[in-house]
Simulated assay, not measured.
Amino acid sequence: MGDRVDREEVRKANEVHVLDYLQSKGEAMEKQGHYYRHPEHDSLVVKDSGHWYWNSRSKGGYGAISFAREYYDMTFQDAVRDVNTQDHSKTFSREAERHVAKEFEYPLHQEVAKHENISTYLTEERKLNPKIVAALVRKGLLAEDKLKNGIFKWKDSAGKIVGGDRQGTVKMDNKRGSFKQIMANSKEDGGFRLDIGSPNKIALFESPIDALSYFELKRPENIRLLSMSGLKDQSTTTGIRDLIKDCKERGAVVEQVIFAVDNDAAGEQFVERWSNYLTNFEVDKPKNKDWNIDLVEAKTPVKQKEPKKVIEVER
């Protein structure tokens, strides 16, 4: 491709917000106030303004080009080309430079009428029951965007969309295997939730797919399944508070809080911290690392060994 890039290529790459670039590369940045933190490098943060800092390396910069050079170890020319060849959703606006917290606005213009890619992904790759997937679409909790990502919509008690998770359906060459992202300006203490019956219990998960896998495996009744999209104290606090309020309006009470987070060290630490504040709670651990792995394992036939053939010797 040569060692030169022209001014137009550089200008075009400079207009790409670093968070849009990261989104297209499948890097699942976690929103924390006015900045985003990398889940695998917790000292690497990107601000709404487009400035990024890698504190452990004492590095920093502005924009997608400088980030690509540092994080992916690219030359300037290769960084410009890589930024320009990605399929950007343009979710993050230059207006973010004002550092003003914006209310979430669901990007309806990015949604497509069909949902075959996310439906196929959830049923074939993640082994969820097609009826559950169809019900989510019917209830307006699941959709698909123009980039073939599934969108798990976060709705509050009034039915208003306050955020969302994007889940890729195409395999990517990253540690997660597919693209995942919390949508820009999603309510910080929100999350994907699904009410079963008249909820008087709440179960907390690290992802929407884990919550749905748990539902299919356990078929609980009268429960609110809430994904924190990670391990977020603010989502836990607001989730419990909202259920108390909803129960009170029905003349009911919250009977139990269930922690159904991943079966790993981070999940254990999260539960241990919350055990200092709650008295009536239960811990429901998946057998494997998470509930979807349990579901996939339960639905994968065990290959039986073929009986050894007996070789008869003529006498």
Rank of each mutant, 00 (worst) to 15 (best):
D3L: 04
R7Q: 15
R7A: 15
R7F: 13
V10F: 09
R11M: 13
A13H: 02
N14L: 09
N14P: 02
H17G: 06
V18S: 00
V18Q: 02
E30Q: 14
E30V: 15
Y35C: 02
H41D: 04
H41G: 07
D48Q: 00
G50N: 06
G50D: 05
N55D: 10
S58H: 14
G60K: 11
G60Q: 12
Y62H: 12
E70K: 02
Y71N: 02
Y71M: 10
D73F: 13
F76L: 03
Q77I: 05
Q77W: 07
D78I: 03
D78G: 10
R81Q: 00
D82C: 03
V83Y: 00
T85R: 09
K90I: 06
T91F: 14
R94F: 12
E95A: 01
E95Q: 09
E97Y: 01
R98C: 00
H99Y: 13
K102N: 00
E103W: 00
E105Y: 08
Y121M: 06
E124R: 10
P130I: 04
V133N: 01
L136C: 08
G140P: 08
L141A: 08
A143H: 02
E144R: 06
D145Y: 01
L147M: 08
N149Y: 04
I151M: 07
F152D: 02
F152A: 05
F152N: 03
K155W: 10
G159S: 12
V162L: 12
G163L: 12
D165F: 03
G168N: 10
G168T: 11
V170C: 04
N174Y: 11
K175L: 07
S178W: 11
Q181V: 13
N185T: 05
S186Q: 03
S186L: 11
E188V: 08
R193K: 15
D195N: 13
D195L: 03
I196S: 04
I196Y: 05
N200L: 00
P208V: 05
A211M: 01
K218L: 04
K218E: 12
E221L: 01
N222R: 06
S229W: 02
L231A: 10
Q234A: 13
S235C: 14
T236Y: 05
T237V: 15
T237S: 15
D242F: 07
I244M: 12
I244Y: 14
K248H: 14
I258V: 15
F259M: 07
F259R: 06
V261K: 04
N263V: 02
D264L: 05
A266F: 09
Q269I: 05
F270I: 03
F270C: 04
V271F: 07
V271M: 08
E272N: 08
R273D: 09
N276D: 14
T279D: 14
F281Y: 15
V283C: 05
D284I: 01
P286V: 05
D290A: 03
W291F: 06
N292W: 04
T300C: 09
T300Y: 04
P301W: 06
E306V: 14
K308Y: 12
K308I: 10
I311V: 10
I311P: 01
V313T: 03
